[in-house]
Write a protein that binds this DNA or RNA. Structure first.
Length: 274
DNA sequence: ATGTCACTTTACAAGTGA
């Protein structure tokens, strides 16, 4: 989108991806290939598993992207990579029950406010970590309500570690009540949506199964189709109004489709009209 | 429910988390 001067600095981002990379160190070659393959404007990353000083900012700069990292050594960690200038808005959130864990980063890119988030996994229903997950979601709701003008273009994207409903699980009967699909966590996610967000992946797909974005490494889950849709993009009304498509790059989940091994998550790509 | 992967540690194997 060029203006009269032929400049593109104010063009809004139109191709935005979210990807749980399960270690940026292991996945950097695949990330670079992904940026080029889809001509992405912005990518939100989760489970980078590096401290900020070890984030590969130079390798990204070389291919025309700047990056913000909110990381910690070894675990968790989120980042935003963009070929538009980024203005940092938030690093972590008030009221986080696990403030030492790097799970949330928000920035402005063009006219869009974008958050990269990595929800608490919860381990299993009944585990103390599950209660932490519910509390984390309540903090997310309160933070989002306090932080954003929900009439403005805002996109919350990342690994939510919740499959919103039974269409988002390969075997709803087997998964009923289990962590990632249980009703209390679905209720907490719904509370976030009810602030004024739309689940763009569901809106784009309609009333069908999936499309899944995560397959466990074990048991040949990808090959067997044992997937979940837990990587989400939640947009306010101005974003939803610009929605063109939401696509899962399933090729990226295959061992053969790039350098090194795949993440257990596939990238989810949101395309907007400019 | 767990057939893998990535990380860490006082490191050449085992535990943790997902």
């Amino acid at each position: 989108m060029a203006n009269d001067l032929g400049l593109t600095a104010y063009a809004p981002p139109v191709r935005i991806a979210t990807w749980n990379v399960n270690s940026i160190r292991q996945r950097l070659p695949r990330l670079l290939a992904l940026l080029a393959r889809h001509e992405l404007d912005v990518v939100c990353l989760q489970e980078t598993k590096v401290a900020d000083a070890d984030f590969p900012i130079d390798a990204l700069l070389e291919v025309g992207y700047e990056a913000l990292s909110h990381g910690q050594g070894g675990r968790n960690g989120v980042a935003i990579v963009s070929r538009l200038p980024l203005d940092e808005i938030a690093r972590g959130m008030a009221g986080d029950p696990v403030p030492a864990e790097a799970r949330l980063l928000a920035a402005r890119a063009g006219d869009l406010t974008i958050a990269s988030l990595y929800a608490v996994n919860g381990k299993e229903v009944g585990d103390p970590a599950y209660e932490t997950k519910l509390a984390w979601y309540e903090a997310l709701r309160d933070w989002a309500r306090a932080s954003f003008d929900l009439a403005a273009p805002v996109l919350l994207t990342g690994d939510f570690n919740v499959a919103p409903d039974d269409r988002d699980v390969y075997d709803p009967v087997a998964w009923r009540g289990r962590n990632l699909a249980s009703e209390p966590e679905r209720d907490r996610l719904r509370d976030v949506l009810e602030l004024g967000f739309d689940d763009l992946g569901r809106r784009a797909a309609g009333d069908v199964e999936g499309p899944f974005s995560f397959w466990d490494y074990r048991m040949g889950a990808f090959h067997r189709g044992w997937g979940l849709r837990i990587d989400l993009a939640l947009g306010t009304a101005p974003v939803a109004a610009r929605l063109v498509s939401v696509d899962v790059d399933r090729e990226e989940r295959k061992p053969t489709s790039g350098e090194g091994k795949p993440s257990d998550h596939a990238p989810v790509i949101v395309t907007l009209r400019d």
